[in-house]
Design a protein around this nucleic acid. Structure first.
Lengths: 358, 358
DNA sequence: TTGAAAGCGCTAACAT
DNA sequence: ATGTTAGCGCTTTCAA
């Protein structure tokens, strides 16, 4: 049996601490928050009791009391997707630096779930909400969803990585145009002429931006990219990549058009699928066809061959997301849209091959 | 200008609802929680006001009031690791079914960070804490960490996926012995004789269990596995896999021992590295060397060649984790250790090759 | 069935 | 510098 079992176990709060230290609860609160001067001796006494009892003040009570939860809600399309996990971790790190706690929920790309998660965050009185992917990516947003978001955004700041037009969210994004330009430059340097564009969905903003940017710039580099080589739909997964490339092979066979020199994929997962298809059809990467993509997640490095991919500064992105949140909470005047430059293209074997100029 | 701007915006709580509905706050609370009968008409009036104002009760206030936060804390070694992300999602799904919210924090395998995160969860008065990987995996746990954990575990349930001995945590794990047996059976069926064991760390419980199980059973199958083929250290990453296999090639070259028929890797990442090394050395998978591993994360499927891996029922694992938490919260008598059977081995090309019996 | 009132554990005036 | 007190927004006895 423990000594003094009964007394010792009674719930410990700032009151019990205060009593034992012979001070007022307010004083205990003051030494905890550091929001006011406290006499050296009292502080020490309080501190040692806190230490003794291993006291941890209740964030719940504090949240109620000062009506600042210090929680930032964050809805992620799917944390199992490395891209989002990378982003999430960057946010968590940044948030912790500012003494905020993230409350993370998955939406699985399901609008109903997303609404439910938003609600949960409101219940917890999150001071702001960040959304990584999901409905916020769609180019044209559902009416009732927009309404919900606007309802929320009128109360607390919402910052999204997508478009979500019709709402007044803050937006933080990687500059997709710039990302496209980097890849085009790289492909051009290696004398690729005939370029295919695969993966993604037309109704997703970042994909759409890339697509348009490509069309805008292709002539500058003398790229050949007839419609048959362009397919910005089919999704973002490995399987989607396989399907898109299989389809391209088929179409090319029927039309008699030559293979592309390079395939520009919408992300690394997609590229893995594309490579898979290319190998399956008996061609080599990069000797026959180069493959490049975006995001530079771990997969790009460990794929075989390793994939050339546009890298982002995830830490910067996370920090910017959090900064935007904090500024918005603090009612500072800030830009509605922040565009971050991609870090650069990491050249790997999938495209590290200079074609001869014929 | 909005109509009635001032009044409309004043914070809406159960009080404002109560007043407008002409009932007491208690009644509003009752209709929200459903904890007591409320006259039909009053309920309807309250409900319609809730609807009208889009009222969402404060979980913070509720948490303070009934001292049940309905938060389950969860510390993950690294959410960017697909294995943990899979596990996490399974937990989130299970938790939501029970109307609990997960508060997820990463430990990055750093003991100091882990302690800080534990503390944060205590601040938020998590009703229980789940730990996926990290310090809980270590076979021999650090003294002060054990003390901290025991301090916490004496207050709220802790359930871990690792060993964490010296503590009274609940443990939920995949049966590593069984998982090993499945792979051995598979390798045997394909007439692999000479087996190498690569990856992992000796001081991690699940790895250790597998290693010992292998030694225990190898003779039954007539496997040849001299010390030179065994290397259960080197870690869990792709790079670790490359290093381990490179090293094995080197040692074999020096000793003149033949190549193994199959390499049994500690997880899928490791296997990717091993395959990388094998290819690099000019051998083929599976024709020259078969490769198998554990966890069956997405990577196993999209790797080239696709990797044979032991699959788990992640949903079941998540649900069991949450059930254990709930039972423990409810002070039910439950087993301290729950062992789950692996789902089975998913055979893919990396080992789908029958060797001829010489 | 319903309301009044106390209390959850903290913070922040306000007074001293 | 410190104590008193009044909330924060709920839930839950306890009476009625």
């Amino acid at each position: 049996m423990k000594e003094d079992g009964k007394k010792e176990d009674s719930k410990i709060t700032i009151y019990s601490i205060a009593k034992e230290a012979g001070v007022s609860p307010a004083t205990v609160s003051r030494v905890m928050t550091g929001n006011a001067k406290v006499a050296r001796d009292k502080r020490e006494r309080v501190l040692s009791l806190i230490e003794k009892y291993n006291f941890t003040p209740s964030a719940v009570a504090r949240g109620l009391s000062d009506t600042r939860s210090r929680i930032i809600g964050i809805i992620v399309a799917d944390i199992r997707n490395t891209f989002y996990a990378d982003l999430y971790v960057a946010c968590e790190l940044a948030a912790q630096r500012e003494a905020y706690t993230l409350m993370m929920l998955n939406s699985f790309g399901d609008l109903e779930i997303e609404k439910k998660q938003l609600n949960k965050l409101i219940e917890w009185r999150a001071e702001a909400i960040i959304q990584l992917g999901g409905a916020v990516d769609d180019l044209v947003s559902k009416k009732d969803y927009v309404n919900l978001v606007n309802d929320i955004a009128s109360e607390i700041p919402m910052v999204v990585t997508g478009k979500l037009d019709g709402t007044d969210c803050y937006r933080v994004q990687i500059d997709a145009k710039e990302a496209m330009d980097m890849l085009l430059e790289h492909l051009h340097e290696n004398n690729n002429r005939r370029i295919a564009l695969l993966g993604g969905r037309n109704d997703v903003e970042s994909t759409n931006v890339k697509y348009n940017r490509f069309l805008e710039r292709k002539d500058k580099y003398g790229f050949i990219a007839d419609d048959i080589y362009l397919n910005n739909w089919g999704g973002y997964s490995v399987e989607d990549g396989i399907r898109s490339m299989d389809e391209l092979f088929l179409k090319l066979k029927l039309s008699g058009d030559p293979l592309p020199d390079a395939v520009l994929c919408i992300n690394d997962n997609n590229a893995v699928g594309v490579i898979h298809s290319i190998k399956k059809h008996g061609y080599r990467v990069p000797e026959d066809i180069s493959v490049v993509s975006y995001d530079n997640i771990d997969l790009a490095k460990i794929s075989d061959p390793a994939i050339t991919s546009v890298d982002y500064d995830y830490d910067e992105l996370g920090q910017t997301l959090i900064n935007t949140v904090l500024d918005a909470i603090g009612k500072k005047e800030i830009e509605r849209l922040t565009l971050l430059k991609p870090k650069g293209v990491v050249v790997r074997s999938s495209s590290d091959y200079k074609r001869s100029v014929i």
